[in-house]
């Protein structure tokens, strides 16, 4: 089936549109979490949202409301723990993540009847995106771009050198919390579509691939977003063509490119070292 034939279907058009929109926040938030070394904290926030899903399902509320409350709360707690590096935050993040997920599963277990939403939430399905989801992501992307436009220089200063930023009277605490709120926002608006696993993959793999080719944060935002879009669209196309899960198709494609490029780099470095050693031996 050709790509233009596929676009006749509304759910395919929605999926491609959603892919286009989520590539922007994934590129921006992903870049910020990579340069701040907060991938594990972001993973913790995403997984902690599962506790909210379980509670919401038990109470008969929308699971996404529960996920939003729990991810925002987890982001606040994580931001507090990591600010000023007072605690061994990685251990505490692990505890929050595990307990919240277990709580979610427990609440689902004691909920009468068969519950399907939590499974969708963990693994996501971009092919089930509705037009309302697209409007929601559009609003999130718009707000995110405003935040970056207004605060770029200060976010850059805080990410690069928080002590210097503080001496320059930048409110480091505010920007530290803002960054965690952006991650929570990503969880709320993107995870419904992508699922937790794909969300983390899209936040980490594209920025890590483009980091060495980026001169500054802005170019890294841009390259990451473009690469995320290419990976989502190609992965989607492959998933439809070969009838495999869209999430795993996108992640495997991203992971393969990451491994191949790093392997290529490694071989290049090894070759250069070998060449230099030979030259030294000759001299």
């Amino acid at each position: 089936m050709e790509i233009f034939e596929l676009l006749q279907y509304e759910f395919i058009r929605n999926a491609f549109l959603a892919g286009l929109l989520i590539s922007i926040p994934c590129g921006i938030i992903g870049t910020i979490i990579i340069v701040n070394r907060m991938v594990f904290a972001s993973d913790g926030i995403a997984h902690a949202s599962f506790g909210g899903i379980g509670l919401a399902v038990f109470l008969g509320l929308s699971p996404y409301t529960g996920a939003a409350v729990f991810s925002l709360a987890a982001a606040m707690v994580t931001a507090m723990l990591t600010y000023g590096k007072k605690f061994r935050s990685d251990g505490v993040i692990g505890v929050i993540m595990a307990v919240s997920m277990a709580f979610g599963v427990f609440m689902i277990n004691i909920t009468p009847g068969y519950v399907t939403e939590p499974v969708n939430y963990l693994f996501g399905n971009i092919l089930l995106v509705t037009f309302t989801d697209i409007i929601n992501i559009f609003i999130f992307v718009f707000l995110l771009l405003i935040v970056i436009f207004l605060f770029y220089r200060k976010i850059l200063a805080v990410c690069y050198d928080s002590y210097f930023a503080e001496v320059r009277d930048i409110n480091v605490k505010f920007y530290h919390f803002l960054i965690y709120m952006l991650v929570a926002g990503g969880v709320v608006f993107i995870v419904k579509i992508s699922g937790i696993i794909l969300f983390i993959a899209l936040l980490t793999i594209p920025p890590m691939i483009v980091e060495k080719y980026s001169k500054n944060l802005i170019s890294m935002f841009f390259y990451s977003s473009i690469l995320t879009l290419i990976l989502i669209l190609t992965g989607l196309f492959l998933s439809i063509k070969y009838n495999i899960s869209s999430g795993s198709s996108i992640i495997l494609l991203s992971g393969s490119i990451f491994i191949i490029l790093n392997l290529f780099d490694f071989l290049k470095k090894t070759k250069n070292t070998h060449f230099n050693k030979k030259r030294v031996d000759k001299v």
Partner: peptide
């Protein structure tokens, strides 16, 4: 040292 930032961007960081 792997942070994606140019020399000019770092120097300009002094003025917010």
């Amino acid at each position: 040292e792997f942070f994606p930032i140019t020399v000019e961007d770092i120097v300009k960081m002094g003025i917010t």
